[in-house]
Write a protein that binds this DNA or RNA. Structure first.
Lengths: 200, 200
DNA sequence: GACCCATCTTTACAGTGTAAACTAGGCTGG
DNA sequence: CCAGCCTAGTTTACACTGTAAAGATGGGTC
């Protein structure tokens, strides 16, 4: 049965994750409240503890799930491209897409001290994203970052550029970029991200 | 008289700022506690309210002061260079210097929702940093970002790269860079930041 | 049909930020 | 010189937070 007002919620875990993301988006990481999440889900404030040990546990699970969607956003962009360079840049645009669409979640994933990085799920999800980055570098450069010094430089360079763009756009900083309308902004971002890659 | 245990603290405002930075560095933005700061300063938990309206006020003042030192870190690096390109890159290295030296403060300044950006001091301090960036772009490109489209692109590009590097290094992410020892890291950073600039 | 146990609630406690009332004491005006 | 004011601090109070422990509920299994 999928009734709504039962004692046993049915799938409280999923519901809590959903509400946690809403709470996060609304209040930000710093004002995130576990009790607030419980209230949203219409459940007692101690209920979350049963599914996630504590606030860190909930946020960690949320971040892990976030990394999955983060990866998907990059792959979605990449699917439309074939050449290594085009695919690399596309993944960067997907990276930025996600950050702009889910700023608070993005910040949680990359800049929060409340995550438990010993958690296997989070670690694995994060690792998959990093692996994609490595694969993209290798496809472009012809050498794996783990082996080649220049490839390592490319990896850091591309990552930093895309991450920096995301971070700045989230904080509403580069007014120059924000004010551009859709297509022009896309073109500007392509140009900028391209700079971080080795020349064609 | 500069005695220590008086009722009137002498310069509680400065002391609170000092202790607030310590608290921030130790606990991070998310676990920052106003009462903790008061305790560090050896003063009642409500004392800070008299100098800074509330937590946001204290953090805002701290960030404003931080932006001053942030600017100084960039100028210190620039002083050793003469050519526009060298000076631009140097400012970027100063940017990174500061972020690595004061990670929590840096995060507060750029990614905290607890700052009051209507505060004149904060606004002015932030503006001065932004002005330096603009001046560096103009010196290199020969056109002001406010006028020229390409200069605007350069500004965003350079800023994003340097900011992304800072953010990634703070979160201990690019192991590749962190493991390099002093001079090699410096060289790698120069190379990467250079990519974000228009070609020589 | 009785029991067990995962799931949720209640209750309790220490800690947080902020507001209001209270007090100490340096400074100024007469 | 001293009365009083007003700034700088304290005390008290309240609503809220996260977490722990104990109590209730009801679905599933023997």
């Amino acid at each position: 049965m999928v009734g709504d007002a039962r004692y046993h919620h049915g799938d409280l875990r999923a519901a809590l994750l959903r509400e946690a993301e809403a709470e996060l988006a609304e209040k930000g990481v710093e004002a995130f409240s576990l009790r607030g999440v419980a209230k949203r889900a219409g459940v007692s404030h101690a209920a979350p503890a049963h599914h996630f040990r504590d606030t860190a546990g909930l946020l960690t699970a949320l971040a892990a799930e976030g990394f999955g969607r983060f990866l998907a956003a990059q792959e979605a962009r990449m699917a439309r491209e074939t050449a290594p360079r085009g695919r690399f840049i596309a993944s960067g645009l997907g990276y930025i897409d996600f950050a702009v669409a889910h700023p608070a979640l993005f910040r949680l994933m990359f800049a929060s001290a409340r995550l438990d990085w010993t958690d296997p799920a989070l670690c694995a999800a994060g690792g998959r994203v990093f692996a994609l980055l490595g694969a993209n570098v290798e496809a472009l450069r012809g050498a794996a970052p783990s082996e080649d010094e220049m490839a390592r430089l490319d990896l850091v360079s591309a990552w930093a550029m895309v991450h920096g763009l995301s971070e700045l756009m989230i904080s509403g900083r580069p007014t120059a970029l924000m004010t551009l309308n859709g297509l022009a902004r896309e073109e500007a971002l392509r140009e900028i991200v391209g700079r971080a890659l080795p020349p064609q």
